[in-house]
C-alpha cells in the first residue's frame, strides 16, 4: 500500500507539472495531501473523528486555494 501510494504521488506530481494549470495543480496537491495523511501519517488506522477532521481541513484549504488561483 505504501509503495502504491508513493507511485500515485509521483504520478499526480507529474500530471500537475504536465498540465501546467494552477487550478489542476492545487486540486491534485489536495489529493496528494489526503493520500499522505491516510497512508503515511497512518490516519487510515486512526479514530474516525481524526480522519474526518484532517480530511475536512485539507479539503477546505484546497477549495480556498483553488478559488484564489482561478480568480
Amino acid at each position: 500500500m505504501r509503495l502504491l501510494t508513493w507511485a500515485a504521488l509521483v504520478g499526480l506530481a507529474g500530471v500537475a507539472v504536465a498540465s501546467g494549470r494552477p487550478f489542476v495543480a492545487v486540486s491534485l496537491g489536495g489529493v496528494k495531501a489526503l493520500l499522505v495523511g491516510f497512508e503515511f501519517m497512518e490516519l487510515r488506522h486512526a479514530h474516525r473523528l481524526h480522519l474526518a477532521l484532517f480530511s475536512a481541513g485539507i479539503v477546505a484549504l484546497t477549495a480556498l486555494l483553488a478559488f484564489l488561483v482561478t480568480r
Partner: peptide, 21 residues
C-alpha cells in the same frame, strides 16, 4: 509524522509557485 508534514506543506507551495499556464 513531522517529516510528512513537510511533504504536505510542499504539496501546496508547489502549485502556488511552480505551476504556470
Amino acid at each position: 509524522l513531522f517529516w510528512h508534514l513537510c511533504d504536505l506543506a510542499w504539496f501546496f507551495l508547489f502549485p502556488l509557485f511552480f505551476a504556470r499556464a
